[in-house]
């Protein structure tokens, strides 16, 4: 490490951007594999709940272990040969290896973790809001059509008397006022039922405690296995744990069904 490297953006590009890419894509892969694991578990057709859960944990944990630790173990134990030909008894090589473990680790516990929080907490909120606005629009359309019928009923007398004045309403006049009244009533009942808060609540996603449990275990493993390499890891994990406590609380209270 010299000052020359530190000031070169390309150096930082190789050092930071690569683990960053990995850190961002791993939660996405995890999410996909979670679906695959649940599908496989359903396919395997376990008789009891505990059996089902154990095999799901086994699958998901094996995958996550590879996800989050492969890079770190790779740098810690394997990759130093690129520098081995230099004759400094491998000192530079190990120093570089440690630097790479450290950058990967710091990315995993900071940016990758925050991205995960965003993906599991705020993204569902955004999706939910989007769905809600679509629903609002359809309510609005229904309300508009009901108001139209109401207006027509009110002015039915005039419509009947002077049909030549309202050429657009010709078709509407074929309905009897009783039918229109019935339609209006049913429409209002439907609207009030469809706008019931229960619909909003049941469209929220379900809480999955397994993913959170596994993440807590991973965080603990980072501290025990890798804080020797990067002594500032516990500080990051402490902040993450405190953050997780409140963010998961928020997630449970506001963005998940019970």
């Amino acid at each position: 490490m010299t000052a020359e490297y530190v000031s070169d953006p390309y150096f930082w590009f190789i050092m930071i951007v690569f683990p960053l890419l990995l850190g961002i894509s791993l939660p996405v892969l995890n999410f996909i594999f979670m679906k695959v694991a649940v599908f496989l578990n359903d396919f395997e057709n376990y008789k009891t709940e505990s059996e089902y859960r154990n095999f799901l944990v086994l699958k998901v944990f094996a995958f996550r272990f590879v996800c989050y630790f492969a890079t770190l173990y790779y740098y810690a134990f394997v990759s130093s040969s690129g520098f081995a030909e230099r004759n400094d008894h491998g000192y530079l090589a190990s120093e570089n290896g440690i630097l790479r473990v450290a950058t990967s680790l710091i990315i995993f516990v900071s940016v990758a973790h925050w991205w995960l929080i965003f993906a599991t907490v705020y993204l569902p909120i955004l999706i939910h809001r989007l769905k809600n606005s679509v629903r609002e629009k359809s309510f609005h359309a229904l309300r508009y059509s009901l108001a139209e019928i109401e207006l027509r009923l009110k002015n039915w007398h005039y419509l009947k008397e002077f049909p030549h004045l309202y050429p657009d309403e010709k078709k509407a006049l074929e309905e009897s006022p009783e039918d229109m009244l019935k339609k209006l009533k049913n429409g209002h009942i439907l609207l009030s039922q469809a706008m019931h808060p229960v619909w909003n609540e049941t469209s929220l996603p379900q809480y999955n405690s397994l993913a959170d449990y596994i993440y807590a275990v991973t965080m603990f493993a980072y501290v025990t296995c890798f804080s020797v390499v990067l002594p500032i890891t516990p500080v990051f994990i402490l902040l993450n744990t405190l953050l997780s406590m409140r963010v998961d609380a928020f997630k449970l209270c506001q963005t998940r069904r019970r």
Partner: peptide
């Protein structure tokens, strides 16, 4: 975990 991490993170 958070309570136990406090001393370790200070040392770290």
């Amino acid at each position: 975990c958070a309570v136990y991490l406090v001393p370790l993170s200070i040392i770290g």
